[in-house]
Design a protein around this nucleic acid. Structure first.
Ligand SMILES: [Mn+2]
Ligand SMILES: [Mn+2]
Ligand SMILES: [Mn+2]
Ligand SMILES: [Mn+2]
Lengths: 230, 230
DNA sequence: TAGATGAGTTAGTCAAGTCTAACTCTGAGC
DNA sequence: GCTCAGAGTTAGACTTGACTAACTCATCTA
């Protein structure tokens, strides 16, 4: 309830993008350095440094020169709102409008900054309160609570293990189309039948069919192990 | 087909707003002066002058100092796209999301700049190709063709005349709520039963009921006369 | 433990878009 | 035809957020 001197000016588009990317990097446990943020956002490290300083001044991140940033409580609140908008919009685009999941991340990146709260809430009601985006990432609640994204890359599994796909890397359009065409979507149960350590390929069993995938895919699919109690 | 040196950089949000407002003013036959645009956009006349110069340089408007602007062919194409997005979004907000018509203009003003073409087309398909916004204004076609908005204010009618509401002024939230509650929406048939020239009120007959309205409403309702062939 | 390497920061510049204050043009009324 | 009020324009400043080029710091290696 303490409002901590909140000037209620809405955040600029730029700030929202920086915060959301910091949030996503933080969510996978990495510590957030200038270069990684710059790369994700397609700006120079110099610009990122400048923005880190502004965000720190405004109390949205903790920033120590040469050692990266972390979100403050206020920054995390703001960031989770943006990520929430992003993921709900993605769901809307795929589920209601029928747009392919390989394109919705890009579209949501634009739309996430221009969506009034009331509109977002109406969309969420229409969708029936989804809890993940189409790529499997959890949607933060209104209050900023986020279900922890479990999962590790298929690369980490050994032959014989069963697993369920939880989420997939959403940054590569080509790869996403590829995955969907092969049924490699969140929720799918699979078994690693064979791992070929020479060339990095894996043979996956999905239902009745088998599929050989290379390293690129083995790193983009995040799964939870399932105990084989057959 | 002639591309006339089109650098395909997308227009800035600001340019889109200026162009769209110029378009709307031009559509009702007014000539477009600095002050009116400035007022609509909530900026100073100085800023508007500066933008007129930029738009002229880019070939989007014809501009002669001290005598206003008009859209070039290219400017009209760009402007009609923005207005089209605005009005389709309004329809989406009212018809699919159930948001009240008094708020959708404001929301659409933000969203109109962040809506990819593919998303807009999908929304339009979902709506079944609407041809007006919720307030009755025509939606320009993809190619920029616009059905002419007919209609004159109720103020212009004399006692006894019948008319159909075509569109309503959409800028005033309070007024819009008021109108909807009284059934004064596009498509409604009414008769001016009486005009009181002393205080500017009119008595309207709608279906079985009558309604006394003042000047504010009489100027906000745009109607087409209907011949009374009873 | 002294470099060297590369990530990160600072300094300086730029473009877009806004503002205020001071000006200049236009046309309505005399 | 003057004149002058008000609409419109110019001048100059500011903010945001980006860039390049030159620097500085941290760390890893020899
Ligand atoms: Mn974005
Ligand atoms: Mn996603
Ligand atoms: Mn707008
Ligand atoms: Mn409308």
């Amino acid at each position: 309830m303490v409002d901590s001197m909140a000037k209620n000016a809405p955040l600029s588009r730029s700030r929202e993008d920086y915060l959301a990317h910091i949030y996503r990097i933080q969510a996978v446990g990495h510590n957030v350095n200038t270069g990684e943020v710059a790369q994700h956002l397609g700006v120079t490290p110099a610009s990122t440094s400048a923005m880190f300083k502004r965000l720190a001044q405004e109390g949205l991140v903790n920033y120590k020169s040469y050692s990266g940033v972390s979100l403050t409580e206020e920054g995390e609140r703001a960031a989770s709102h943006v990520v929430r908008r992003h993921r709900v919009i993605e769901r809307f685009l795929t589920d209601i409008l029928g747009i392919g999941w390989e394109r919705v991340d890009e579209f949501a990146n634009r739309m996430e900054h221009a969506m009034p709260d009331e509109v977002l809430e109406a969309i969420e009601r229409l969708l029936g309160g989804p809890d993940t985006c189409p790529h499997g990432y959890p949607i933060p609640s209104e209050e900023g609570k986020l279900a922890v994204a479990t999962g590790q890359p298929v690369e980490a599994l050994v032959a014989g293990e069963w697993a369920v796909i939880r989420h997939v890397d959403e940054s590569d359009t080509e790869l996403l189309r590829h995955l969907r065409e092969r049924g490699l979507v969140p929720g799918t149960l699979l078994q690693v039948a064979e791992t070929n350590l020479i060339d990095g390929t894996r043979t996956l069993r999905i239902g009745d069919s088998t599929l050989v995938v290379g390293q690129r895919i083995a790193r983009a699919l995040f799964v939870d192990r399932v105990v084989d109690d057959a």
